[in-house]
Nucleic acid binder design. Sequence first.
DNA 1: CTGTTAGCGCGTTCAA
DNA 2: TTGAACGCGCTAACAG
Lengths: 349, 349
Amino acid sequence: MHQKRAITIKDVAAEAGVSFQTVSRVINNGPNVTPAMRERVMNAVDKLGYVPSLAARRLGGSRSYLVLAFNDRRPTLEGWQSRRGNDWVDQMLYGGMLKCAEHGYRMLFELVDSHSDALEAQVRAAISALHPDGVILTPPHSDDARITELLHQGGLTFARLGSRREGEGFAVYMDDEAAARAATKYLLDLGHTRIAYIEGHPEYAISGDRLRGFRGAIESRGLAIRPEYLQPGDFTYEAGTRAMATLAKLDPPPTAVLASSDEVALGVLHAAAPLGLSIPRDLSIVSFDDTPTMRMSVPSLTAIRQPIAAMTAKAAELLIEAKAKGLEGSSRHLLPFEFIVRDSTAQPR
Amino acid sequence: MHQKRAITIKDVAAEAGVSFQTVSRVINNGPNVTPAMRERVMNAVDKLGYVPSLAARRLGGSRSYLVLAFNDRRPTLEGWQSRRGNDWVDQMLYGGMLKCAEHGYRMLFELVDSHSDALEAQVRAAISALHPDGVILTPPHSDDARITELLHQGGLTFARLGSRREGEGFAVYMDDEAAARAATKYLLDLGHTRIAYIEGHPEYAISGDRLRGFRGAIESRGLAIRPEYLQPGDFTYEAGTRAMATLAKLDPPPTAVLASSDEVALGVLHAAAPLGLSIPRDLSIVSFDDTPTMRMSVPSLTAIRQPIAAMTAKAAELLIEAKAKGLEGSSRHLLPFEFIVRDSTAQPR
DNA sequence: CTGTTAGCGCGTTCAA
DNA sequence: TTGAACGCGCTAACAG
């Protein structure tokens, strides 16, 4: 069975009785089109149900109508395989795919091996094959100079999600310091004064941001930070259990803990039970990130949420706009975080 | 900053000192290429890092190297918005994207409004824009004649996930009857004899399949089905709570329930607690579908799992193969289900 | 304001 | 076994 010949721009031109470049001009909102002509052409387009071929557009013109997102392969696959799902991919689709669709764009995902020598080759290959109009980088690629340099050399516009660095590309990120401050203030407002913080991995810039927010909130109330309430960490579950063990032995122990990641918060949660601590009666916990698991944990965790969907939508918008205007933007865009109150926080006893 | 001119087939040809058609032949595994020539060309390809442009391939040739999946918009968006994620999309990406990558294909998602008049137009538009080599249909599109007919008319190969119907396209599905039978047998083997079943929506073919499996398992043990243990339903949470209310009043009540969907199982679970029934001590529950929520519920649910990733991978494989061979297959492919034992099942007291 | 011409980077005929 | 012509559907220069 042979495919019925697809409807092309020429069919529309014939239907409208104009040359096919006029049609091209109309569908691309080109200049110099009389409203009457525009209407005539659009009628023909609607009548025939014409939709331009992406491939032909890319080949003939300078745009591909494609936005390509690079995600880290290992954690993504692990999420899918374990059936936990993958918050980043889900929320990026939610934010990015819809925004792309608004502009007639499509969004594609490419999984690459962050810590592999092949990383650059993988990125290069995907770009050669697709020639995207814009690229979205997610952590840890957002700050990977190998990639940003490659993209910049190739003249591609890109967005760096979760990166607050200046430099090439659009940095689209949330205010970690303000988020930590808000979370801490929430605990203070509940009446907590003995609040602990489990730090993030020292290599990450956001760790410092969050610590600063925590500090700022405490000190703004005229309180002093107790050094023993500041526990080192690295975003892992083990860091949470370890810190909790230490904190519980203090006198007086903290009545609330701000964790630097979901994993850490889970570690605290699971370490608290054997110690005879009931959440939130004896201890309040606030978590960073708010992956879906947090919603389902018992008790469900109060958390700061990274606005992944909003960041991706913003990134897509910036990239598409930059392409349309033919410029290679590099600017920084701060998005508001969300704070979700659930069942892991309460007034201190 | 201008993009450095991309590497094209001509660059490779120049590097290898051959005409560019020879290069084309080599990278497409065409006939009539001497091993020596092949090696020479491949060396040039590797040296330059050449990757053919998808757009140009699609335009010049007959393939687009694209597989397009249509998903129902409303539930997909709801899953993302609520941060529950979306099991179908996740698992389809997991199964489909990887399989596509193996063959140099890409997989794209398109959300369409199943119950809208615009459905056909949306499908048509996506196809016109992308000209995919194959299309993957998910429920409820898999059995939507408007779409299958449209695709068939257009000469497109497509796969119907979760559809056991014969007809155009590849039907890729799991054996619901065998799954229900296995789940029931599992309960029987635990020692249950009073097992209830909450039926699915009567309009769905799988409802009948599952009922048949349930029946078969019970009767194969020489037991009779008590009519009052067969509760009507429609896959919803409410059907679960309603059925549980009825079942609890029976004398004797069932010691185990097989639910026709996750939602139903959750309804049963939540209705059981106020009735003073402890799961699994007083009542065992087995669920169908195994969306991620089931894993996290308390207690976690024993469940039959639809092999979405495997179905999607199979579909992608079939589509790509059909395209390569230039035929418009229509065949049926039965995939094994999975049975996941968790904490909602135990021996009867 | 509109139409004409020339490619984009490939695959697909053909002929050599 | 290899190479040369042609066209896919469209946009981007032009010219009218």
